[in-house]
Simulated scan of single mutants.
Amino acid sequence: MHEPDQDRTTALLSRWLHEEATRHQPDRDRIWSRVETAMRPPEPRPARRHRRAWSVTATATATAAIAAVTSLTVADRADVLPSLPLAGQGTTGASAPPSRAAAPGRQQTREPTTAPTRPTPGPKVTVRASLSPNNSRYWAENRLTLHVHRPLKSLQVTIQVARTGTLAPAGAWSSLPASDHRPQTRTTRTAVIYHWTLHAGRTLRPGTYTFAAQYTPGPGHRPAADTYTVTTPTPITGHF
């Protein structure tokens, strides 16, 4: 473009701008409205408000869910774990588990109860046979010592001394009261028999009693051949 044309264009543009500026009048109310609007503090965005409310709701929901899970976990463990006594509370007095009832249609059997057995009583009398330490070829004595363990209503004691050669009776005695028994001695061809009988209606109390048969031994006498019988009324027999 040549220089004269450029100057002409500039002049036309300047005139057009001047005419437009003269014709234009600013709208003051609109300008001040825009200024006041610009000066106001910005209102919170709805999106942010909704997002914040959602965050609060989500936090509350998560907290409730955690509390529910914790509650269920504690409840499940309470079903599994055994119940423990409180502090200071012992186990004494705790109720025992209920006994299992018998199944329907099935008869419950009981173990047979046996009556307690009574101890077998021991013997009423124990007997010990002995010879006097003073025995000689001129005089001898066979002794019976009775240990009475229970009261006796009847008692008979017999000592038989076998006869050999010139053996003969030389007396007899007993520790029983004379009023409670009757002594008796008799001689046969083969033995001298000494006999004591408790009177009827008398009771021999527990204790130790002695019965002795005295004799003069003959040649060849052996005390092992002498015998005794104690009847209470069960007979007890033996040799010296």
Score class of each variant (00 low, 15 high):
residue 41 P to D: 11
residue 165 G to Q: 08
residue 156 Q to E: 07
residue 238 G to W: 01
residue 207 G to E: 06
residue 232 T to S: 11
residue 111 E to M: 10
residue 129 A to E: 10
residue 75 A to F: 14
residue 5 D to N: 11
residue 79 D to Q: 14
residue 113 T to H: 11
residue 40 R to E: 09
residue 25 Q to E: 06
residue 145 T to C: 06
residue 43 E to I: 03
residue 80 V to S: 13
residue 214 Q to S: 13
residue 233 P to I: 04
residue 204 L to Q: 03
residue 195 H to K: 11
residue 231 T to M: 09
residue 139 W to S: 12
residue 179 S to A: 15
residue 91 T to R: 12
residue 66 I to N: 05
residue 235 P to K: 05
residue 211 F to E: 00
residue 228 Y to Q: 06
residue 75 A to K: 06
residue 32 W to G: 00
residue 149 H to D: 03
residue 153 K to T: 13
residue 168 A to D: 07
residue 52 R to D: 05
residue 175 S to E: 05
residue 29 D to Q: 13
residue 130 S to D: 12
residue 235 P to E: 01
residue 208 T to A: 07
residue 215 Y to A: 04
residue 124 K to R: 12
residue 63 T to F: 10
residue 192 V to W: 01
residue 76 D to I: 14
residue 210 T to F: 03
residue 227 T to H: 14
residue 57 T to I: 05
residue 144 L to E: 01
residue 175 S to M: 11
residue 158 T to N: 01
residue 156 Q to L: 08
residue 22 T to D: 11
residue 39 M to S: 07
residue 121 P to Q: 09
residue 239 H to L: 01
residue 56 V to Y: 11
residue 154 S to L: 04
residue 20 E to A: 14
residue 71 S to C: 09
residue 202 R to F: 08
residue 116 P to Q: 07
residue 217 P to E: 09
residue 112 P to R: 13
residue 106 R to S: 05
residue 73 T to V: 12
residue 125 V to C: 03
residue 142 N to V: 02
residue 10 T to S: 10
residue 167 L to W: 01
residue 73 T to E: 05
residue 136 S to N: 15
residue 21 A to V: 11
residue 222 R to P: 02
residue 83 S to K: 01
residue 194 Y to T: 02
residue 201 G to K: 07
residue 103 A to C: 00
residue 207 G to W: 05
residue 84 L to G: 02
residue 169 P to Y: 08
residue 193 I to W: 00
residue 92 T to R: 10
residue 64 A to W: 04
residue 5 D to C: 00
residue 91 T to W: 08
residue 141 E to A: 12
residue 202 R to N: 09
residue 111 E to S: 08
residue 60 A to E: 05
residue 63 T to I: 08
residue 177 P to V: 04
residue 47 A to G: 12
residue 45 R to W: 03
residue 65 A to F: 05
residue 84 L to N: 04
residue 105 G to V: 02
residue 199 H to L: 14
residue 229 T to Q: 11
residue 70 T to R: 02
residue 123 P to W: 02
residue 125 V to D: 02
residue 112 P to D: 10
residue 208 T to M: 07
residue 223 P to S: 07
residue 57 T to S: 11
residue 74 V to R: 04
residue 42 P to M: 00
residue 147 H to M: 07
residue 58 A to R: 01
residue 71 S to R: 05
residue 93 G to D: 01
residue 77 R to Q: 11
residue 140 A to F: 03
residue 130 S to Y: 05
residue 118 R to L: 14
residue 119 P to A: 10
residue 225 A to Q: 07
residue 216 T to W: 10
residue 18 H to M: 08
residue 17 L to A: 15
residue 34 R to D: 07
residue 32 W to T: 10
residue 9 T to L: 15
residue 55 S to F: 09
residue 188 T to H: 06
residue 34 R to E: 13
residue 138 Y to G: 08
residue 128 R to E: 13
residue 123 P to Q: 03
residue 234 T to S: 13
residue 102 A to I: 02
residue 181 H to P: 00
residue 56 V to W: 14
residue 73 T to C: 11
residue 19 E to L: 15
residue 154 S to Y: 03
residue 153 K to Q: 15
residue 183 P to T: 06
residue 186 R to H: 15
residue 73 T to F: 09
residue 177 P to S: 15
residue 240 F to I: 09
residue 238 G to T: 04
residue 127 V to S: 09
residue 86 L to Q: 12
residue 160 Q to M: 08
residue 48 R to W: 09
residue 238 G to Q: 00
residue 16 W to K: 09
residue 120 T to L: 13
residue 187 T to Q: 14
residue 110 R to V: 12
